[in-house]
């Protein structure tokens, strides 16, 4: 009986303690960011890892998502003779939701998991400890550059994903299905608003997702049990937690930005 109560209490306290550690981790991460002013080269290397190497998956996925949107939108709008608003449909769904959300999910799978595995491996092979023994703070030297690079890369990747997606929609709608190209762009421009849609959707959402995705990925790696099993577990957890966090955050942000007011 007592044991069951203890277990119950533990199952509440453990996640709470973990949340506390995650927040302290985040503060230390922010505190270490200023180090990058002295060593901008570290940032470039990480931008390559999380940004450039994520480009192929972002480009291909964006194109396909846009093409699917074009096809589905056409199939539905053609019944109302409203195919001229296809541009609006494709652009708004990509800019407001699909661009930021799918980019963040793909990022978690491609770059986030790699970040977790990389940090976990550095921990397991005592690279982080040996760095500390050389009087070098891993938060400054290892974690901060990765975090900032991810924070910069996610909005850029989101922009690329969205733009390529709209291009994909254009290819299907205008080039293949024969929707009028002028109407496609004109309707889009008339209905897509710069501040409420592009800034809120592509910029603010992706910034928020970038913080969440990189924070989770680095924290999971830093907290991983230093065994191969622990690292693979942490990698899985990164993808799952990031997906949940991104979708939950997306609902919150959508309600705040586009909700009825």
């Amino acid at each position: 009986m007592i044991a069951a109560l203890t277990r119950l209490g533990q199952s509440v306290l453990d996640p709470l303690a973990r949340l506390g550690r995650a927040n302290l981790f985040f503060l230390r991460l922010l505190g270490a960011l200023s180090f990058l002013l002295q060593r901008p080269g570290l940032l470039v290397k990480q931008l390559h890892t999380v940004g450039v190497l994520s480009l192929p998956i972002i480009l291909v996925s964006g194109l396909f998502v846009g093409m699917v949107l074009g096809l589905q939108g056409y199939a539905n709008l053609v019944d109302f003779g409203a195919t001229s608003s296809l541009g609006t449909v494709v652009a708004l769904s990509l800019i407001r939701e699909l661009g930021p959300v799918l980019t963040a999910l793909l990022y978690a799978g491609r770059a986030g998991s790699a970040l977790t595995a990389g940090i976990g491996l550095m921990k397991a092979t005592e690279q982080l400890a040996s760095m500390q023994m050389m009087a070098v703070d891993p938060f400054q030297r290892v974690l901060a550059p990765r975090f900032l690079a991810g924070f910069i890369a996610v909005p850029l990747l989101t922009g690329i994903f969205t733009a390529v997606g709209i291009l994909g929609g254009y290819l299907v709608a205008v080039v293949q299905l024969g929707v009028d190209g002028g109407a496609f762009w004109a309707q889009m421009q008339a209905k897509v608003h710069f501040f409420t849609d592009v800034v809120n959707g592509v910029v603010f959402k992706s910034l928020a997702f970038g913080v969440a995705a990189n924070w989770i990925a680095l924290f999971e790696g830093y907290e991983a049990q230093p065994t191969s099993e622990g690292i693979s577990l942490a990698t899985t957890r990164t993808v799952v937690s990031t997906s949940l966090a991104v979708l939950g955050l997306d609902f919150l942000l959508t309600a705040l930005m586009f909700g009825v007011w």
Binding site: L121, M122, T125, E126, Q127, A129, S130, M131, M133, M134, A135, V136, R141
Partner: peptide, 25 residues
């Protein structure tokens, strides 16, 4: 400190590993 595993930085060459503390400090 010499760690059991060596704890070399896997993304740096032998030269850069030895240069690491010099470059940092």
């Amino acid at each position: 400190m010499l760690f059991q595993s060596g704890a070399l930085f896997t993304d740096l060459s032998v030269f850069d590993n030895v240069a690491f503390p010099l470059r940092e400090h």
